[in-house]
């Protein structure tokens, strides 16, 4: 398969970026998207040019490192997968593919397609934990948890922190990310104790970092590689409202 790639190149955080066009030929349909970029990078290195920088690590869809805004979709056109799980068979021979970095004020570009997502760590730092020290905790079976709650908590906890929700949201809102964490803990007895402070602190941090406001467009849910539902955003809204009222 042959492709025309239009890729965002940016030397560093301060530099002005631009799109560069690359042609790549003879790509196998079984090749993953990142492997295709690996091949392109090797060709660039052969020409003593700087390869394209992009974040990636586990290459099996769980670490959340890979990003890339591909033809108007974070993680590309396939559903329920990350970029590293996207395969070239999802494109047509001869396609033009536009590859952009995540765009959001709190996710500044570091280089080319690499962005700084440490804002997510700061949000977790603000309250995405249960305050227990190591040791001195009760037996794991001391507090039964209804299976359905545990399962719903797990649905939320599946978040890989990739930032696709922010990238796709027309408002660059981080609500789905924050909701996934708040919701996970709100559903479990272990997390309920601090539910109030958690919701308030995490939302305050999210706002402070300059993420946009949720307008319930549902784009995050549609593009989330882990299919996290916006029902968790509703739960976050509830948690936040009750935390402020009570």
């Amino acid at each position: 398969m042959d492709f025309t790639l239009k890729i965002w190149r940016q030397e560093n955080a301060k530099a002005k970026g631009r799109f560069e066009t690359y042609n790549i030929t003879g790509i196998s349909a079984d090749c993953s998207f990142l492997e295709m970029l690996d091949i392109l990078n090797q060709q660039l290195i052969d020409k003593i040019e700087k390869p394209i920088c992009f974040d990636h690590d586990c290459r099996e869809g769980i670490c959340g490192a890979c990003s890339l805004y591909i033809n108007g979709h974070p993680h590309g056109p396939d559903t329920g997968v990350t970029t590293c799980q996207l395969h070239m068979r999802k494109f047509k021979d001869g396609d033009t593919i536009i590859i952009e970095p995540w765009r959001a004020k709190p996710f500044p570009v570091i280089k080319d397609l690499v962005v700084d997502r440490s804002a997510f760590d700061q949000i977790i730092e603000a309250g995405g934990f249960v305050s227990v020290n190591t040791g001195g905790v009760p037996d794991a079976n001391a507090i039964p948890v209804p299976r359905v709650d545990a399962e719903t908590a797990m649905d939320a906890a599946a978040c890989i922190g990739c930032g696709a929700c922010v990238a796709t949201c027309k408002n660059a809102s981080a609500m789905l990310f924050v909701a996934a964490k708040v919701s996970q803990f709100a559903l479990l007895p272990q997390g309920k104790i601090e539910a109030k402070e958690r919701a308030i602190n995490m939302v305050a941090k999210m706002d402070e970092l300059g993420f946009g406001n949720c307008t319930n467009t549902g784009a995050c849910e549609a593009e989330c590689p882990k299919n996290i539902s916006i029902s968790h955003i509703a739960r976050l809204n509830r948690e936040y409202l009750t935390a402020n009222i009570s």
């Binding site: 934990f129 249960v130 227990v132 190591t134 040791g135 905790v137 009760p138 037996d139 794991a140 507090i143 039964p144 948890v145 209804p146 299976r147 545990a150 399962e151 908590a153 797990m154 906890a157 996970q184 803990f185 479990l188 272990q190 997390g191």
Partner: peptide, 12 residues
């Protein structure tokens, strides 16, 4: 015990 206390959603 520790992981459950941290809110790890193990299968139940």
């Amino acid at each position: 015990d520790q992981c459950v206390a941290q809110g790890v959603p193990f299968a139940r």
